[in-house]
């Protein structure tokens, strides 16, 4: 694992000796440490702000009731994310579920039927009725938080789209 005499190590030792150049290198190291420290400090600030201000939607939209929290746990226990997405995040075997409980022609009962019985493509996962109710509550909380996908977006010259920034921000 450790060989003391490789050319790389010899070269490294040679390059690491010498008084003046050594001082310059240490000075550069101090500058580098300072840059990394500043970046990490900014990251800490960003982390705090992410946790405290990341919800652009009001808390009542996207907030989770006790039932919805149980639904989130079932969503993970049945590994629904392997096939489904929220806001396009997740597996691509099945459709995105962000607005499924509020979509035209669908709704909570439609969603519950799929969860309980599966389809030709979706296996019956053995979800019971109480779990299905919890899952629908979770999906409905997600549906209340926003809309996905964004159709007919208004593009800007800066490579963004107006719908990225919610009204009032």
């Amino acid at each position: 694992m450790f060989t003391a005499s490789t050319p790389a190590l010899q070269s490294l030792r040679n390059s690491d000796s010498g008084g003046h150049s050594e001082r310059i290198r240490w000075r550069a190291t101090r500058h580098r440490r300072a840059i990394v420290a500043v970046l990490v400090l900014l990251f800490v600030v960003q982390t705090v702000l992410t946790w405290t201000t990341s919800t652009a939607v009001p808390t009542e939209r996207g907030g989770l009731s006790q039932q919805a929290r149980r639904g989130r746990q079932w969503y993970q226990e049945f590994n629904c994310t392997a096939c489904h997405q929220f806001y396009g995040l997740g597996g691509y075997m099945g459709p995105d579920l962000t607005n499924v409980t509020r979509a035209k022609g669908k709704g909570p009962e439609y969603t519950k039927a799929f969860i309980l019985h599966g389809t030709a493509r979706m296996p019956n996962l053995g979800v019971d009725k109480s779990q299905a109710d919890d899952l629908v509550a979770y999906l409905d909380a997600m549906a209340a938080s926003g809309t996905y996908p964004i159709r007919a977006a208004n593009l800007t010259p800066y490579g963004t789209y107006k719908e990225m920034i919610p009204d009032g921000e």
Binding site: L39, V40, L42, F43, Q46, L49, T50, T53, S54, T55, A56, V57, Y87, G88, L89, S145, G146, Y148, P149, I150, T160, M164, I165, P166, E169
Partner: peptide
């Protein structure tokens, strides 16, 4: 690594400053 992660969540209605950053 520290500040570029929000490009994964442009469509999520989180704070705009995160996504613009």
């Amino acid at each position: 690594l520290l500040f570029g992660w929000a490009h994964h969540i442009y469509p999520v209605p989180s704070a705009s400053w995160l996504r613009i950053l």
